[in-house]
Simulated scan of single mutants.
Amino acid sequence: MSDMGRPDVPNISDAVKRKGDRVGRRLGETVGELTGKFDVPTRAEDKMHQAADAARHRAADAKHYAHDTAEHARAQVEHLVDRATSSAPPVAGVGKQVVGAVRGRPVPIAAAAVVGLVLIWWITRRRRA
């Protein structure tokens, strides 16, 4: 007696095989997930890259802030020089020298501003700890 004459009877071996394939795929996915969770060196490296990216972003933000601060300071000095030149000619010469120094060395002044901000941040963090 063969199953060929009875189309309504499912083939049990095919059903078992399909079930085994599904279980095998799920087991493979689970093993893959667990492997990723227990791969400590790779996870540590990923964290290191994330921290480095965050530090680069903070440094870029600090650079822009320092540049903006230097520009603001330059504008204030120019304003003071303009006021000084209208009231006292000897002070105007010193003010123009200061403005010339700021214009001649914007990168070192911005770097000094960044270093100052980092020092202030570091000191306040240490005091809170």
Rank of each mutant, 00 (worst) to 15 (best):
V91D: 10
V99Q: 04
S87A: 13
S2P: 02
H49I: 13
V16L: 10
P10A: 07
A112I: 11
W121R: 14
H49F: 09
T85W: 03
N11W: 01
E29R: 11
H67P: 00
P7R: 07
G116F: 02
A73Q: 12
G5Y: 01
V23G: 05
W121M: 13
Q76S: 01
D14L: 01
T124N: 14
A70Y: 03
A112G: 13
A88E: 05
A112E: 12
R103S: 09
A70W: 02
R22W: 04
E78N: 05
I120T: 15
G93K: 06
L34V: 14
V16N: 09
I12L: 15
V31K: 12
V23C: 04
I109F: 02
K63N: 11
A73F: 06
K96H: 10
S86W: 01
M4P: 05
R18H: 01
S86I: 07
A70D: 08
Q76F: 01
A113M: 12
A66H: 01
Q76E: 04
H67S: 07
A129W: 03
V23S: 08
R56P: 09
A52F: 03
A101F: 05
P41G: 07
G104E: 02
R22I: 15
K47Y: 04
V77T: 08
K37Q: 14
R56Q: 15
V23L: 09
E78Q: 04
T85E: 13
R43H: 05
G95V: 02
D68S: 15
L34R: 07
P108D: 00
V99K: 05
D8R: 00
A110P: 00
R43C: 07
T30V: 07
M4K: 09
P7S: 05
R74G: 09
V102H: 02
R128W: 04
A55L: 10
A92Q: 00
G24I: 03
T69C: 12
P41L: 07
A111N: 03
D46G: 15
E71M: 05
A70R: 06
G28N: 10
I12D: 14
S13P: 02
V77M: 08
H64S: 12
V23W: 00
P90R: 00
T42K: 12
R25Q: 11
A84I: 02
D21T: 07
V40W: 03
D53V: 15
A70N: 12
V40D: 03
D39R: 04
S2M: 05
A88D: 00
A55I: 11
